[in-house]
């Protein structure tokens, strides 16, 4: 374990942890020795690997859930509380992107992206912060995106939802600060995950050329930022958006 580990494992909830960035975040907390609960609409080989791994036996929970459903969020959080008794960390990671110019975007696409990225994050924050308030501690990290700040052609809806998450982050930090709860966001740059599949190879190479770090990001880059923001010693760091993009927007 690293020197940031606490004596008692934390109970960490990561939404959308079955693949991609979310799976990288789940793995990072499991590697730290923490208890991790995650949800997604369906299981994946990564989830099955954790479920069968004796090294994480008793400290990993997966529950199928659609985070855009308030009822599913409530059921998932209740299952975590029933199993582990509390929640110390919430990573609001679940998200979806539908690319296309706004003039051709359907109502359904707008609803799907807004319902999961914004409403789902609010549902989870509501359910979890209520429990965190009772114990007067906790930390929430919302996974935003650099496109919520810079925008990107063809990603108007997704960009809008990510900008919304940053507003939510600042509001919740003010609302929950007196209860010992910190709320921050991470705005990742362009990662090698399924979420970047809407970009073609030429677009990805253009991004790499413009990125001082000279590469796309990996889930591990974001997972390390999560570890930092949720370090129990960082109680004076709240209401902020940490941009982790290899310097692209610096």
């Amino acid at each position: 374990m690293s020197e940031t580990s606490t004596a008692e494992p934390r109970v960490v909830v990561v939404t959308g942890g079955s693949r991609g960035l979310g799976a990288g975040i789940v793995q990072a907390y499991l590697d730290e020795g923490d208890v991790v609960a995650t949800c997604a609409r369906s299981s994946t080989p990564e989830v099955e690997k954790w479920q069968g791994d004796p090294a994480v036996a008793g400290r990993f929970l997966f529950q199928p859930a659609d985070v855009s459903s308030s009822a599913d969020c409530a059921a998932f959080v209740n299952a975590v509380i029933e199993r582990f008794g509390r929640i110390d960390v919430l990573i609001n990671n679940a998200g979806v992107a539908r690319d296309g110019v706004i003039g051709l975007t359907s109502d359904e696409d707008i609803d799907v992206v807004v319902d999961l990225n914004v409403k789902g994050s609010l549902y989870m924050a509501r359910q979890v912060s209520r429990r965190m308030m009772v114990k007067r501690s906790g930390t929430i990290v919302n996974i935003s995106s650099v496109v919520g700040r810079s925008g990107y052609r063809g990603l108007a809806v997704y960009s809008a939802t990510k900008a919304a998450l940053e507003g939510m982050t600042r509001a919740l930090a003010r609302e929950l600060g007196t209860r010992g709860i910190t709320v921050n966001a991470i705005a990742p740059g362009y990662l090698r995950t399924e979420m970047s599949h809407g970009l073609d190879e030429e677009q990805l190479q253009q991004i790499v050329r413009r990125t001082p770090a000279g590469r796309l990001g990996d889930p591990e880059d974001i997972a390390r930022a999560c570890q930092f923001l949720t370090d129990p010693r960082n109680t004076y760091l709240t209401g902020q958006v940490l941009v982790v993009d290899g310097g692209l927007t610096g």
């Binding site: 209520r130 308030m133 009772v134 209860r179």
Partner: peptide
Amino acid sequence: LEAAELSAVLED
């Protein structure tokens, strides 16, 4: 906030 906290206590 205290009302929200009480509601969580009762729900649990």
